Amino acid sequence: MKKLLASIAPLALAAIVGVSSAIAAEEPAATPHYPIHHPKEQSWSFAGPFGTYDKAQLQRGLKVFTEVCAACHSMDLVAFRTLEDLGYSEEQVKSFAANYDVEDGPNGDGEMFTRPAIPADYFPSPFPNVQAAAYANNGAVPPDFSLLAKARYVERGFPQFIFDIFTGYNESGPNYIYSLLTGYEEPPEGVEIAEGTHYNPYFLGSASLAMAQPIDDGMVTYDDGTPETLDQYAKDVSAFMMWAAEPHMEDRKRTGFMVIIFLAIFSSLMYLTKKAVYANKEH
């Protein structure tokens, strides 16, 4: 009996310690899990296996990016010529690109020079190098926007990720960007954040980030009568960033659908062929 009690005691102690740890994890002093709030799920035109981009929304998102975000963020992997996919003509793209200056060269004297951008060029960075970007932003380098909508993925957990496999779910990035832009708020009572940072419970890295709220109501003028609100700005620029990260998404979905149809027909034919060949065979 004593031996039995001696063997049970360590297990009981471990269970008590485990319960204590679980209780401690639920206390305010426990290490939080980021993001504190799960991203707000929005309705996107490109969602689902048959979703497509809303070109009017992408054009508005481009306007928000150029007038607000481009002051700090680069988009190094996006060429001006790809803007034709948003519904712009070749002349409009040339005119848009000419608003930017890019470094070129060397010239005949062996020196670099600046010239107006052409459609074959890529969106230039607002800073000459990473060190300059960090110096201008209190040590925090603004991330490049080219692939951000695909890179910022927040897991949805079980059982949602099972359904995501079959629905072609790829809205995690846009949902996160939208939530971040609209999620700035004052820190709750008792929560302290580092000096020079801004509280945002949707941020993936910590409770606060170096970037202040970049946009608010009325900062960008829309020509099509769309509401000029923070909510609308966040949706439009998030959709634009999704397009920048995956400009060929519509082609991918069309190709995938045709492949699925082909496999379904091929599988049916193979099944019927097997039945016809082995129908009269003795087993």
Rank of each mutant, 00 (worst) to 15 (best):
N170R: 02
Q92S: 11
N175M: 06
L5F: 07
A132M: 09
A120C: 00
S238Y: 03
P32I: 02
L269Q: 12
N99V: 06
A264S: 13
V78A: 05
E90V: 14
N137R: 12
H38V: 10
H283Q: 15
N107E: 09
Y222L: 06
P116C: 03
R254H: 07
L77A: 03
A9V: 12
F257K: 01
T229G: 07
G139Y: 03
A279I: 04
A136W: 10
P201S: 01
A151Y: 11
D76A: 10
A9K: 04
M211I: 08
P28S: 11
Q42I: 01
S146C: 07
A30F: 06
F50M: 01
A140T: 05
A120S: 15
K55C: 14
V130Q: 13
S208C: 02
G196K: 08
H38Y: 10
D223N: 10
Y169M: 07
V19W: 10
S20A: 15
G48F: 07
P116F: 06
A136E: 11
F46G: 09
P214L: 11
C72R: 09
D101T: 15
L209P: 00
V220Y: 05
S7D: 03
P39L: 05
G108A: 04
K150M: 05
V237S: 07
R254L: 07
E186Q: 11
A239N: 10
S7E: 05
I260Y: 04
R81W: 00
T229P: 03
G256P: 05
A207S: 06
Y184K: 05
